[in-house]
Amino acid sequence: MGRHRRGAKREVTVADLIDELRRFEPGTQVRLAIQPRMPQEHAVGPVAEADGMIWIGDGGQRGYAPDEVGERLGWT
C-alpha cells in the first residue's frame, strides 16, 4: 500500500486503507509508526474530512515501536 509496482509513491485512498485493514481482527488496536530510523509508536487520533481529503490525527506518542515494526514496514 502506498507504492505501485515500479516503486514510485502514490496516494493511499480510503478503499486502499480499508482493504489493508480487513486482513486483521476487528478488535485489534491500531498504532501509527513514525520515523523510519527510530520508529516511534503513536496512537490514532480523530479522523476528519477537509480540503477533499481524509485526515487521521495524531493521538500522541506512546513510546518507541519494537524493532519488528520497522522490519515489517520495510524500513530496515
Rank of each mutant, 00 (worst) to 15 (best):
R3E: 04
H4P: 00
R6I: 06
G7N: 04
G7K: 08
G7Q: 01
A8N: 09
R10F: 02
E11A: 15
V12M: 11
V12F: 05
T13D: 07
V14S: 11
V14Y: 09
D16A: 03
L17P: 00
I18A: 13
I18N: 07
I18K: 12
D19I: 00
E20F: 13
L21F: 09
L21H: 02
R23E: 12
P26A: 13
G27L: 09
T28H: 07
T28C: 12
Q29D: 14
V30P: 00
V30Y: 09
R31L: 12
L32Q: 02
L32C: 10
A33Q: 11
Q35A: 12
M38H: 12
M38V: 11
P39V: 05
E41V: 09
H42G: 00
A43P: 00
G45E: 08
A48W: 06
A48Y: 09
A50Q: 14
A50T: 10
D51M: 06
G52T: 07
M53H: 14
I54Q: 09
W55I: 11
W55H: 15
I56Y: 01
G57R: 04
G59C: 05
G59E: 08
Q61W: 04
G63S: 07
A65L: 11
A65D: 02
G70V: 06
E71L: 10
R72I: 07
L73G: 02
W75R: 03
